[in-house]
């Protein structure tokens, strides 16, 4: 698989898996207004996934469309960050996960908007507007929960401690990143770290939350080495396509 296909899949899978997780809240959110907001964000993410996966299939040139890629790959073929596949947990967990990712996503899409590859640049530019709103939404909730009640503060800090260790992956560079950065179609993964950390630190301070210590652990979902949770998520997501091969829906 070419570096470009793999790279595009990473973006598609990030949006798909997070969109799938977020949609689980629909009907179960803390307040009706949030059911609606979460659904909007989930819809944006799935829309992005469709664009990225379609592009990946086209570059690959083997006739795989968005659904072939979403429903007929095994867990080791998925390229999303490990953070995004972890089960939802409580609302604090969901908000923290989203904020950590949304802050990265905005920076990444900014960088990609200047990609030499016009297809990549176009999808990035479209997704960027959506990601901006997602970041506003999750950042706002992070502050409300962090600086809310004693209970919400404790839950949010705990969620942060649990998930912080998965953020190293955002900035961990491999051969795919290097090749894409080199060609001008992508960006150097590590280059976003400082800005991300600064932005996240500012919001965490406003939320009266402590920045957790850096961990030695690095997850490798984007290279296809996932947690135990992804295959279960996929088993559920792919069930109909797998049970009825060749059927159209």
């Amino acid at each position: 698989m070419s570096a470009k296909v793999e790279y595009v899949l990473r973006f598609g899978d990030n949006s798909l898996i997070l969109g799938q997780r977020l949609a689980e809240w629909l009907g179960h959110a803390p307040v009706l207004e949030e059911d609606i907001a979460s659904a909007n964000i989930s819809l944006d993410l799935i829309g992005q996934a469709r664009l990225w996966l379609t592009l990946a299939g086209r570059i690959e040139g083997k006739g795989r469309d968005e659904d072939r890629l979403a429903y007929h790959r095994e867990q080791q073929d998925f390229r999303n960050f490990t953070l995004l596949e972890l089960p939802n947990g409580d609302y604090a967990y969901t908000v923290v996960r989203r904020f950590l990712f949304d802050a990265w996503h905005c920076l990444a899409l900014d960088a990609l908007s200047g990609s030499h590859d016009t297809d990549i640049a176009a999808i990035a530019a479209k997704s960027r507007k959506e990601a901006e709103y997602h970041r506003l939404h999750s950042g706002d909730w992070l502050v409300r929960l962090g600086d809310g009640t004693g209970e919400s503060h404790a839950r949010t800090q705990a969620a942060l401690e649990l998930q912080w260790r998965y953020t190293a992956e955002f900035f961990d560079s491999d051969a795919v990143d290097a090749e894409m950065a080199e060609s001008g179609a992508g960006f150097a993964a590590a280059s976003l770290r400082d800005e991300w950390l600064e932005e996240v630190t500012t919001v965490l301070a406003e939320a009266t939350l402590k920045v957790p210590a850096a961990a030695k652990f690095v997850s490798h979902g984007k290279r296809g080495r996932h947690s135990e949770h992804l295959s279960r998520l996929l088993a559920e997501m792919q069930v109909l396509q797998r049970t009825h091969p060749g059927a159209k829906w």
Partner: peptide, 20 residues
């Protein structure tokens, strides 16, 4: 109408609820 804790949140929610 909708329920929100403050104006900022109300604006955000109004966007999601009433301009889908």
């Amino acid at each position: 109408s909708l329920h929100a804790t403050d104006a900022k949140q109300a604006i955000q929610m109004a966007r999601d609820v009433y301009t889908r």
